[in-house]
Design a protein around this nucleic acid. Sequence first.
DNA 1: CGTGCGAATGTTTACGTAAACATGCTGCTC
DNA 2: GAGCAGCATGTTTACGTAAACATTCGCACG
Lengths: 342, 342
Amino acid sequence: MNETPSRRRSRGVSMADVAALAGVSSQTVSRVSTGHPGVVESTRRQVLDAMRELGYRPNSAARALKSGEFRTLGVILFTLATTGNSRTVEAIAAQAAQEGYAITLIPVAVPTQDGVLGAFTRLGELAVDGVIVIMEVHLLDAVELQLPPGVQVVVVDSDAGDRYPVVDTDQADGARQAVRHLLELGHDTVWHVTGPEESYSSERRTQAWREVLSDAGRPIPPIERGDWSAASGYQAGLRLAARPECTAIFAANDQMALGVLRALQENGRRVPQDVSVVGFDDLPESASYLPPLTTVHQDFAEVGRRCVQGLLSQIRDDRGEPGTVLVPTTLVARASTAPPSS
Amino acid sequence: MNETPSRRRSRGVSMADVAALAGVSSQTVSRVSTGHPGVVESTRRQVLDAMRELGYRPNSAARALKSGEFRTLGVILFTLATTGNSRTVEAIAAQAAQEGYAITLIPVAVPTQDGVLGAFTRLGELAVDGVIVIMEVHLLDAVELQLPPGVQVVVVDSDAGDRYPVVDTDQADGARQAVRHLLELGHDTVWHVTGPEESYSSERRTQAWREVLSDAGRPIPPIERGDWSAASGYQAGLRLAARPECTAIFAANDQMALGVLRALQENGRRVPQDVSVVGFDDLPESASYLPPLTTVHQDFAEVGRRCVQGLLSQIRDDRGEPGTVLVPTTLVARASTAPPSS
DNA sequence: CGTGCGAATGTTTACGTAAACATGCTGCTC
DNA sequence: GAGCAGCATGTTTACGTAAACATTCGCACG
């Protein structure tokens, strides 16, 4: 009652306070707090009671200062607006929490080298033991030296496997499955709506699409380029709808596929009777598109898990082995694909 | 060359190292580092040069330990999988970065009181100055006392305005706009697909829907309940498609609206000729649904900004005023609504 | 020409924790 | 029963920073 409740930041309860109440030394409190052995049960109980009574919480800053570890991982990315990124981040956060690590989000304001540079500069002052970079790595080239010493890195969505550890969905295999599915249905060839040039995922999918067609001796139609958005898919779809010879389309993600579906159907091309469409990602709502979309399922959760596992093992070993971990994909056949009608 | 590069955690450069190189005391380095006045230009330059040469980075743990501030905000939420959450978090991260704060993500493993309790327990050990809670607040009731002293809180998606500061989209007004739009088009009444019971947003939208109908003297049809997913919207849509008297539907989010669209059209009910549909959220892809969806636009970015501003002003004042900040919505009329055909 | 004041810089200390080392006690062996 | 092993616990110290206090020096003013 005699306190000053308006006092700012009450300088929480410290080990010394707990130690005083429990009648032990603060080192014993520390041992209990960190779960070290060598504390007899009765003492431990006394300490725990005192902790509870005072509402003791370990001060993570002091802990970090002492141990040199923050038990925090940074995640650098451009945006959470894409499903892939937000799902990956969610899995990263869940896995990290399970390992006793927190996640600090480091958004890059503008997707340019300057923006990335800024993020890495801020990173230098941030309390993280490692970083997961979710972006194409050539945007990183200018800044790779900026990594603070002792901070490890894992990269997603990149082909930098020769320089950094990389975890990624098996983009190529997913795209191959999509294209082969359409060829097996009997289509002569497969048209393609790709994503932005600067995206590694996009380029990888396009490359695999071209390879499958080429290996099968099929003609390679011109590429329609989108920007991942449904609106850009719609524009691409309008152009494809005008080509009667186009009977099968592989869109580089589900959102663009959605735009393609609308463009086709608004222009009298029925899906799948006249044109088959395959997407990539398997968003939860893809099954509710009109018609339900055949697509390539990505296991974002697994990507996130592997990122964290890889990063933590680096942190513990103090060295990152370059190399790439690929997470497999599966084709989910729904109602947007069928044999050509002719 | 003579170093031991394999040495773990090189115990980065400290102020003492910089001070030694620059030939000054470490306190002078501190003054330069924090931008304090009272350092003559020539000395400052020497120190800055030494910092650059050694690659000095302030140790945020030591700083936090000394100052009692972490310059970090925590965000507690169930999932990033919903568009609203991930967009809000993104805005929060951007605004916080601008204010010099980092964001730590605290995912709640399971959406139960136990899960929330666990998250708040972890929070106690986390280095944050404030917390943004993105969830219905009654899940918090059991744990409100667990807030570490000095940690402020702002709540999103809740009606706890009498206990905590709350920032939220104006759910009620958005829903009113949606329902009025349908009535103004000439529909007798409006059917409703609601979200999960435990969601405050969902309940608030439903309540506003009921009020508008009631005020207009219209019959109030039975509610169809979904769980925010397109699949649940599809199920609800199937039931509504079977009712010929249903000509106007307000779905509590865009994804359920997508499911409704599919159910209607697969069962021969044309949209918007036979049935009009309105959603809520204005997802980027809603404009590409078949037909493009009339929906209520939410300004997630503004919600995020307001959260951070509110929280930081609390942190600086040391007290949170309960109260609610409402962010306005706008109706975006597209092609899924029209006057009834009869 | 001495006094004193203020600006620039240095020294000491505390923040909370945990490793390293020190102490004291119990109980067992020969 | 002396000695010592081994365990429970206490004491000291360092982590990197920044506030508080101390010192030095130059210059203005009487």
